[in-house]
């Protein structure tokens, strides 16, 4: 705060003193003036007291009540992880051929909570990003996967934890369709190189294409599926994932 050299101990000046708005030299001058002004000194003390009272009164505000029906994140993650592993174990026992199917026909269903074969349990300090692909062009597919790879490499080189999910629905599903995707090679490479990267396809879109256009959609082998892509990304946002719409 800059003032000219002619000081006055106005209400604004006193408040600014209380709030430490003056640099040291100016503050020293004002404090010197206060020594000769009893009324202003008393007012300064009163203002300081008011400031402290406000600060104290709001130091510990009440916390919001937890929303009904929602468990804490860490507990929920543990439950989901347990269910996921159980599901995978059961499937492996009763359907031994499932995981040995030719790559071009493998579908991996996510469990109801959307964790799949690789539960995305949040670890400490893990950054979690969900990309929502609702429309795509050839150029976008290349750009998107290129950027995701750069992001994954960046975190890997720094030893920091990152989990990325790419959720495709609507027109964006083209990215994960066996016949239409122009990025199949890249998808395969990325899926092999980065176990912390998951591609998720929306089954609602698959169903809609079948019903409305008579198209039987075959997804690339790297794609996992979820009942509703929109519901999935909303759930991820609620869980605290960074949401990026492409």
């Amino acid at each position: 705060m800059n003032r000219n050299q002619h000081w006055d101990l106005s209400s604004e000046t006193l408040n600014a003193l209380v709030d430490n708005e003056y640099p040291a030299a100016e503050k020293a001058e004002l404090m010197q003036m206060l020594l000769d002004d009893e009324a202003a000194s008393a007012e300064l003390c009163r203002l300081q007291r008011v400031k402290e009272m406000v600060k104290t009164a709001y130091e510990q505000p009440p916390v919001p009540q937890p929303k009904q029906g929602r468990e804490t994140s860490s507990k929920r993650n543990r439950v989901v992880a347990a269910v996921s592993m159980l599901l995978v174990g059961v499937m492996a026992f009763f359907l031994p051929g499932l995981f040995n199917q030719p790559a071009t026909e493998r579908f991996v269903l996510l469990d109801p909570d959307g964790r799949g074969a690789h539960p995305a349990v949040a670890e400490d300090q893990e950054v979690r990003i969900v990309f929502h692909v609702a429309s795509t062009t050839r150029a976008r597919g290349e750009d998107l996967l290129g950027e995701i790879q750069a992001l994954l490499e960046d975190y890997r080189s720094r030893g920091e934890k990152l989990r990325v999910e790419v959720v495709a629905n609507g027109e964006g599903l083209d990215l994960l369709r066996e016949k239409l995707s122009t990025q199949k090679q890249k998808l395969s490479e990325l899926a092999q190189q980065y176990p912390n990267l998951t591609f998720v396809a929306c089954l609602n879109t698959v169903k809609r294409l079948r019903v409305e256009q008579g198209v039987i959609v075959k997804l690339v082998p790297e794609a996992e599926t979820t009942a509703s892509g929109v519901a999935y990304v909303v759930k991820r946002q609620q869980e605290g994932w960074i949401y990026i719409q492409v």
Binding site: D19, K51, M53, V54, K55, T56, A57, Y58
Partner: peptide
Amino acid sequence: AIHRVRCAVAKLNEDQRQVLTLVDI
């Protein structure tokens, strides 16, 4: 005492309350 201060802050108009809380809190 805390409650009294909060009640008093609540009685300020919106403009004054915003500035005061940003500076003091």
